[in-house]
Amino acid sequence: MRLLVNKIFLALSILSALIGLAFLGWILATLFLKGLSSFHFSLFLDDLVDGGLRNLIVGQMILAGIASLIGIPLGMTAGIYIQEYGQGRYASLIRDLSDIMMSAPSIVIGAFVYALIVVPTGGTSGWAGAVALAIMMIPVVINTTDSMLSLVPRELREAGIALGASKYKVIIDIVIKAAKVGIMTGILLAFARIIGETAPLLFTSETSNYFSLNLSESFPSLTVSIYDLANEPEESSRDLAWAASFILTVMVLIINLTGRFITRNKK
């Protein structure tokens, strides 16, 4: 009896794992089949107006890149504060708030930036989109920096101080170096996360059919265009959406795997 219950339970658990994996396999298979069949190298050469994706891919990268330029320094210095300088209450309050912000609905961030930037400046813009992504990124960077720095042994800091180095020198030259790999991985994962975001861009950067480097106007976004294309009735638009999704997923997965690879190599 006991053994039977045990067997049934284990079988159910394996079954649910299989169901779960089947769903996820199904999604990936769909993505790869549809994506590859609509994929063509000219997609990288033409802009959306001409049926390509070049402007969108470049635009998405620029948005995520600028977001990183804003988010990484802010997030890292904030993480350093929490772990190295902060004392007691305030530091742990910031840590908690950042934790909450990390899980805040991305569409709400979009609405915030809309009210903060889009309305006052009179229209959607690349800057607004990049700021929205940066806000998504900051708490993730804080979280990694904080937890990676916490892994650095106290003795290392003390040894540095004992040599007569000032605290910031020790942090920059020793502590950060020691935690470098972990922080880099975290940043890569954060980047992978924001580059696939749609919701915070919908009404901040919007998207554009044309190639653009002008961040003060509506800016081409791969994800927002996927949403638009997928909802259009023509088969060809949807195929393009699948191809774009495929490219997006491959980018996200490569960044993700690179991050994991770095940490693994270190170990």
């Binding site: 999604i27 990936l28 696939g196 999704s245």
Partner: peptide, 8 residues
């Protein structure tokens, strides 16, 4: 899979 963009 948890990292795949939700739009997909």
């Amino acid at each position: 899979l948890a990292a795949i963009p939700s739009i997909i």
